[in-house]
Amino acid sequence: MNLSGKRIAVTGAFGALGSVVSAAVKSAGASVACVDFAPVTKAPAALQGYVLIGAVDLGNAAAASAAIQSAASQLGGLDGIVNIAGGFRWEMVADGDAATWDFMFNVNVRTVLNASKAALPLLRTPGARIVNIGAAGAVKAAAGMGAYAAAKAGVARLTEALADELKDGGVTVNAVLPSIIDTAANRADMPGAQFDRWVKPEQVADLIVFLLSDRASAVTGALIPITGRV
């Protein structure tokens, strides 16, 4: 896929998935601004030379707006945003805490809302793209995933609503729904799992690059499962 000349912001870019997506987007020809909650000093070495914007709390609307404006300023404009920033908590409802639900909403839904809203004035041109990271668990949740799955279901509904708002302007909004992503952290948390059944970060990145490309111009409001063999 060719993203030559496109200027893309990636949130959650310092993480295991975000860093792979950032590299894939750059390899496809785009200029990339990497935004993350962690400070720039925590950025992976592989992202050296990219536009790095760290210590950003995307749950705060003003901070999100400043970060996206900075990304656009340093890139010379903005043609797309990939919303990867988020988090996971495993907690049973019976012995859990309602605060977890607030936390999951804040890190998974509010971050996408704030970053997307901040980007909208910069993306009001045909061919602009918004790609969100949802979760397969939002379609069918398992025990311990109530708060996380509910938050990711919120990302799905936000994706659909925003896609409908922007469809007449030629701006597409889509979400990818991964199952378990094969990262070092997930392997450590589930050492007995069959890792070869999980989806690879590179596979998720390939799908995101397609959705950012001109070839995906007819795809909007889609919630696309990418689940490996889970």
Rank of each mutant, 00 (worst) to 15 (best):
A61L: 09
S73K: 13
V56I: 13
Q194D: 15
V20Y: 01
R197M: 14
L122R: 13
S213C: 12
A43F: 13
S179E: 09
F105I: 13
V20E: 06
R7W: 04
G15D: 02
D206N: 12
A193W: 06
M1P: 10
G134E: 05
S70I: 07
N2F: 10
L58R: 08
A23Y: 04
D57H: 05
T227M: 09
L162M: 15
I84H: 09
S27W: 00
A193C: 05
R7N: 06
I53D: 09
A193Y: 07
A16I: 02
P126D: 02
D95Y: 00
L78C: 07
S116W: 02
L162H: 05
P44I: 06
M92E: 14
A71T: 05
A99P: 06
A218L: 06
A147W: 02
G192Y: 11
S19R: 10
D95V: 08
Q74W: 04
G170W: 00
I181N: 03
D97R: 13
R89V: 14
Q194N: 15
D168A: 13
A33M: 08
G221T: 02
P121V: 08
M1W: 02
P191L: 14
A30R: 04
F37H: 05
G80N: 12
F37T: 06
A141T: 11
A222G: 12
I130W: 02
A138W: 07
D168S: 14
V20T: 15
L123H: 05
T100V: 12
A46M: 10
S4Q: 14
N186A: 06
R124A: 07
I224N: 08
A64K: 01
A45Q: 11
G134M: 08
D189M: 13
G127D: 01
V199D: 13
G228T: 07
R129I: 11
W101L: 15
L75G: 01
Q74T: 10
A33W: 02
G221W: 09
T172S: 15
F14D: 00
R110L: 04
V173F: 00
L58F: 11
G80F: 12
N83T: 03
P178K: 11
L211V: 05
R229T: 14
A33F: 06
L177H: 07
R89W: 07
I181S: 04
G228R: 01
A98S: 03
M190N: 14
R229L: 14
G59F: 01
A94P: 04
N106L: 08
K152P: 03
R89G: 03
V32R: 08
A156L: 09
L212Y: 08
N60I: 00
T172R: 12
R124L: 14
G5M: 12
V139A: 14
A23L: 15
S27L: 08
M190L: 14
S73Q: 15
A143D: 13
P191S: 10
G5I: 07
G146D: 00
A135S: 15
V93W: 03
E165H: 04
T41Q: 13
A55Y: 01
G54K: 00
V199C: 12
A138S: 15
A72I: 01
A64E: 02
V112D: 03
V25Q: 00
L123W: 05
A85G: 12
A216K: 11
A33S: 10
